[in-house]
Amino acid sequence: MLPEVTATRYVTPLREGGSLPGIVEADDLGTYVMKFTGAGQGRKTLVAEVICGRLGRRLGLRVPDLVTMQLDPVIGLGEPDQEVQELLKASGGLNLGMDFLPGSIGFDPLAYEVDAAEAGKVVWFDALINNVDRSWRNPNMLVWHGDLWLIDHGATMIWHHNWPGAAASAAKPYDASDHALAPFRPDIAAAAAELAPLVTKELLTEAAADVPDEWLVDEPGFETTDALRRAYVEPLLARAATIHERITLTAPSKPRPSQAPGWLTGHLTPWPHPAEAQKAAGE
Rank of each mutant, 00 (worst) to 15 (best):
G221D: 13
E223A: 15
H244A: 15
T224D: 10
I243A: 04
Y232E: 04
R239K: 14
R229V: 05
V233M: 05
E234A: 14
L228H: 03
V217L: 15
I243Q: 02
E245A: 13
D218M: 06
I243K: 00
T242H: 14
D226Y: 06
L216Q: 02
E245K: 12
V217R: 14
W215M: 06
R246E: 14
R246K: 14
L228D: 03
L228C: 07
A227F: 08
F222C: 04
D218N: 13
R230I: 08
L228M: 10
P220R: 09
E245T: 12
D218I: 02
L216A: 06
L237D: 04
W215T: 02
R230C: 06
E245V: 03
A241V: 13
A238L: 11
L216H: 01
G221T: 09
P235E: 03
E219V: 10
D226T: 11
P220D: 11
H244F: 08
A238H: 10
E234L: 10
E219F: 05
A238W: 06
E214N: 13
R229K: 10
L236A: 05
E219N: 08
A238Q: 12
R229G: 01
A227V: 05
A227G: 12
R239S: 00
L236Y: 03
T242Q: 14
L228V: 11
D226S: 13
T242S: 15
T224G: 08
L236E: 02
I243P: 00
A238K: 11
A240R: 00
V233F: 02
R229S: 03
A227T: 09
R230A: 14
E214Q: 15
W215Q: 04
E223P: 04
R246M: 08
T242R: 13
E219Y: 05
L236W: 02
L228Y: 06
R230F: 09
W215E: 03
L236H: 02
T224I: 06
R246C: 09
I243F: 05
R239I: 00
V217G: 10
W215L: 07
A241P: 06
G221I: 09
R230E: 15
